[in-house]
Structures are given as C-alpha cells and as structure tokens.
Design a protein around this nucleic acid. Structure first.
Lengths: 342, 342
DNA sequence: TGTTATACTGAATGCGTATTCAGAATGCGC
DNA sequence: GCGCATTCTGAATACGCATTCAGTATAACA
C-alpha cells in the first residue's frame, strides 16, 4: 500500500457506494451519469447509498480516466491590478456557465524557471487563457504545435501563429477621443502619453492618435509625445516636465486612465485648470475615472466582455477544435467633464 | 481501449521517456524526484529524453497516485469587486510561494444546487479559503468533520466550530477614526452609514463607532444611523434623505469607502462643503479613496496581508494539521483631507 | 578468487473512475 | 414450457504516475 499514511482514508469511494447498494461500481457510475438505462429499483438503491455516504467522485481519478480536467487555466502577468477585476469577473462567470473550473496562475517577468517546472499548466487544464507579454512566441508555438487550446487576451499572436485572440478597438477608440478634443473643443496642441513600448494596446492607441491628427491636418509633433508607461507616477513626471519646460499644449490624451490620473495631478500642481487651460482624456474607463475631479472623459474598454468572449472562444476551441481567429470588441467614447464638456 | 477517441494521444508519458532512455519508468520517476540516488550516466540519459520529448508529468495521474492536488481552492461571493483585487494578489502570491496552485470559484446567493453538484471543491483541492457568507454553518461543519482543511477570510466561524480565520481590527479602526473626528476636529453630530446586516465587518465597525461616542459622552442617536450597505448608491440615497429632511450633522463616518463615495456625491449635490460643513471618513482605504475630492480620510485595511496570512495558515493546516485559530490583523488610520486635516 | 555489503534498477502494484465485453436475468412469441 | 431477443449487470481493464519489493551488477574486503 504505497503512501498509505499520507493519504486521507476518509474519502468515500465508488466501491463503498457499490457495496452498500449491493451492486458493482459499474452500475454506480451508470446511475450517476445516466449513460445506460438502469432499472428503477437498482437506481434508487444507488442514489440512496450515494446520499447516505455523501459520495463525491474523486476529481483526480475522474480526470485521469476521462483524459480531461474540465478546467481552464488563466495566465496573468500580475493579479489584482484593478484593471483585471472586471476581466476576471467576465472570465469567471463565463467559465462557470460553461461548467469549467478556473485555475489561476501569474507569470512574473523574471520567472523563467517556472515555465520550465510546469509548462503553462498543460496537462493540468483543458485550455489556457493567456494575458501576458512574458510568454514568448516559442512557448506559444510549442503549445500550438501540441494542439493545446489557447486563446490570447489583449494580445495578438506572433506572425504566422494561428492562435485565436480577443482584443478591443484601440485605434478607433483613440481616434474618437482625439477627434472629439479637436472637433468639439477646438484643441490643436494635443499631447500624448504613450504606453509601454512593445505593448499592443499602446501601439494602436498611438496609431489612432496620429490618425486623428492627420485627418485634421495637424502636424505630428514629437515634442508632444512622452512615455506614460500606463503608470500614474511616470505620467505625472512626464507632464510636470512638459509644464516646467514651458511646452505649449492645450490638451492631453493619456494612453490609459492611470496615466490620466497622473497627468491630472501634475496639471493641478502646476496651477493649470482642467479643462479650461488643458483638456484631458484617458482610455479604459476604469472605476476610478468617474471619481476624478473633474470626472474623466475616456474611452470605455469592454474589459468584462473581453473575458467572457475569450472563455467562449476557448471552450469552442476545446470542444469543437475551432474558434474565431480574432474577436474585436468595440470601444465607446465616454464623455465626462475633463474634456471641456459641461 | 476505453475513450480512445476522445483522449488526445499526443501526450508524452513516462513510458515513452523510459523507453527512449532505455530504463524503466521507476527510474524516470527517481530521476525526476531525486528520491533515490541514480547513477550519473543513467540520470543524464533520462534527463536528455525528458528534454527531447518535452515530457511533463500528467497532473491528474500524479494527483491520483499521491492522493493530493497541491491546489488551494478559493471561494468568493463574487469576483472583481475592486475590493478583492489586493486580497487576490495576496492569496495568489502566497500560494505560489508555497508551491500551490489556485482554483477559483464563486458562490452566488441563489446557487444551492452547485453546492450539491460539487461540494465546495473537496476532492478537488487540498484545502479551501472561504470568503463568503453564503456557505452556511452546516456545510462548514460537514467539511470540518471530514477533516478537510478550511480557513475563513473576513469572517469567523459559527460558534463552536474550531475553524481558523483571518480578520482585521474593525472595531479599533472604527474607534480610531471617530475619535479623530471628535478630538481633532470637534465634531459631535457624527452620522454613521452602516454596512449590510449580518456582515461581521459591519457589526464591529458599528461597535467601534458606538464605543468612541460613549468614550466621549456623546449620546448615541439612532437618527444618525442609516443603512449604507457598503454600496455607493444606497449610501448616496441615505445621505440625500438626511439632508433633505434637515437632519443636523457635522460629520459622516461611512462603513466603507464605497459608501463614503456615495456620501460625498450626495453632500456635493446638496451644496455642502467637505470638510468645512461636513467632515467625512471611510473604511478600507481602497484605491479610489485617494482620488476623491477631497482625498478621503479612511482606515487602511491590510487586505493583501489578509490573503497572504490566510494562505499561510491554510498551508500550515494542510501540512501540519494545525493552524492559528484566529489571526487578527491591525488596521491603520489614514489621514487625508476629507476629515478637515490640512 | 570467493564472499558479502552496497548501489542501482525493474517488475509489479495501487490510486479511483469510466468503459467495454461478455454473461445473466427478464420478457416475449409460439 | 422452450427458445430467442432484449435489458441489465458485473468482472476486468485502462488511464499515468509513484512506490515497494525483490532482485542484479558492482565494489570492497579477506
């Protein structure tokens, strides 16, 4: 009896249920899964035994026999960053609706050994939702080659890898806010707080920004672009620097709401009025944005839906082998007061 | 070959590694787990085979053989409520450090059938972190009787159940803020926005509030207490009602930051200045609180540490069979401007 | 060189469930 | 009342890993 002392003997097994009901374990299984008709009398006896003993099939054994886990893996860069909350809710609810459990793991930047120790939860889950830039293309390629179901969130796969992904309309959203700043409020010196280099959201938001300027014949001015890194502190410093060096600007489009918050602080500290002196807009529509003073005009990203949609695609991929190659969710301009609207 | 068509044949098993390395599966296992010395030559061959084949032990089989899952279950009432973010981060990081995976589930109020279908992840995890009021005492008792490791978060077990739990110093924290409003700012008509009935945090915060009043010989006035339900909307309505009916008050202690946010909106809409006319304080120190105008004086709840500590205790319980019956984490007064401080 | 201790290794077994395959019980027609 | 089709049911097996038990080769010693 290997490991007999470490294993809790309390667990009720199908054998005991079978003995109690006077049948074989095969019949127990049949009653539980309704796969083959079982005579009423026997079924009733089995059900009674199950109830009395409080029998619950052992997940590990079930997984082994079935060759699947009914579990979805979620790989995040770090947890609890505020931004993830709605996404997590979407993922959790969609997973539950589909009957899947949710296994969460985070991948920290300098944590390569973990990937070695347990390659991304393969064999541990039926599929993987990946939302992190720290999984390199090679790793993704490996998973894909093995036919392991993967869906990417907020990120497209490296060229050539046909891995389904779910993203939001960053470019169009950015285009819309900047258009609004120009068209509705007549701003033309619009600065941009860029996101982290290599970040896809950051890239497309900048594209939208440039596109809007171009459409309004406003020349792109590199002096009006700085790195906000999607971080409050960095953004604050960048804006403070602009103001200290007398940079002329009448609006700021922040790459995300966090950096918008930082910009707001810097503007306030420099005695600039928002939106009178400088109009401000962000991106994401996080919880915080409506609590800022003035409330932040921003672009709503359907984060919760991203989570739901990703789960939906992943489940499709697992069950049917096919999924939408790319799901693009619309963003929506949310007008509050920081842009100058009443 | 049962289920041969549903099971992916791609998975590399220990048998293949063994064959390739010219050894038995026993030796493969020995090399991987370093339990028994293996000659260098053989070990090297095995390691090479593992690398070439990309072998990863099948979790389900491993769990079955070992009788444990190395996974912690987390049961939440609902996910992504902002408040959970830091807690989740604490839980995740602590779990990872201890080498455990994290399985997340939510328990929705009217979801009794789920509890029947799969009783709380027993047989699925090695232990459970429970943070919800929807698990009744009977269910907890059942788990405890089975010897299944459970730790409660932000909640104490029903009387008599010796289940370890982790909570924060609600009473002392509340006492401190109210003391501050009275001592530092001379407020004496201090209203209280109570949390949900039956919620433990809500209960102890009210106790702290009453205690402070009593210590300052201020009579408790039921007219200055209303249900904020820890919700912005409800709190806003309650405060609006107070103001509309001319209730006299010079300060509001909100049971949590969300209701403080609601109170702030109601005060602002009624033309009351904060903190000049009415001082305001909250509880929790959520991300949002420093973005309010004026920044919210509140009580910092060490939410992330609660998560970490709960995991630590749960792991102790799993590995040693014992844990601290009760962990009480300190809160800390965070003074910003909404109370009247400069 | 023979003997014993030592260091490794492989065959066999158990974990608990789902499923297959063949056999037992039941019902039907004649 | 017998044979045959039809339902049901149980024994056996596979899933993949970890472990035990019984070895076999090697080194140490006399």
């Amino acid at each position: 009896m290997p490991a007999s002392k470490t294993r809790p003997k309390s667990a009720v097994t199908a054998v005991e249920v079978a003995r109690r009901a006077g049948v074989s374990i095969a019949t127990v299984s049949r009653v539980l899964h309704q796969t083959v008709p079982v005579s009423d009398a026997v079924a009733e006896r089995v059900r009674a035994a199950v109830a009395e003993l409080g029998y619950v099939p052992q997940t590990a054994a079930r997984n082994l026999a079935l060759g699947k886990t009914t579990t979805l893996g979620l790989l995040l860069p770090e947890i609890g960053a505020g931004f993830f909350s709605p996404m997590l809710r979407g993922i959790e609810s969609a997973a539950r609706e589909s009957g899947y459990d949710l296994l969460i793991a985070t991948q920290h930047p300098a944590d390569a050994r973990r990937a070695l120790r347990r390659p991304l939860g393969a064999h541990n889950t039926d599929g993987l939702l990946i939302f992190t830039d720290n999984v390199d293309a090679a790793e993704l390629g490996r998973l894909h080659r093995q036919g392991f179901p993967v869906v990417l969130l907020y990120r497209s796969p490296a060229a050539g890898l046909p891995i389904p992904y779910v993203v939001v309309e960053n470019r169009a959203g950015a285009r819309q806010v900047v258009d609004h700043l120009i068209d509705a409020h007549g701003r033309r010196r619009i600065a941009f707080l860029r996101g982290p280099a290599g970040n896809e959201d950051a890239y497309w938001r900048e594209q939208g920004y440039r596109e809007s300027l171009a459409a309004h014949s406003i020349p792109f001015d590199p002096d009006l672009v700085a790195d906000g890194e999607f971080q409050e502190q960095t953004a604050r410093a960048a804006v403070a620097h602009w103001l200290a060096t007398g940079r002329e600007l009448d609006a700021i489009f922040a790459g995300d709401d966090d950096s918008a918050g930082g910009a707001l602080i810097a503007l306030w500290q420099a005695g600039k009025r928002v939106p009178q002196d400088v109009a401000l807009a962000g991106f994401d529509d996080t919880l915080m944005s409506r609590y800022l003073t003035p409330p932040l005009t921003t672009v709503h990203a359907p984060t919760e839906r991203v989570g739901q949609e990703a789960v939906r695609q992943l489940v499709r991929l697992i069950t049917t082998g096919h999924a939408e190659p790319r799901v693009l969710l619309p963003t929506e301009l949310v007008i509050r007061q920081s842009c100058g609207c009443p």
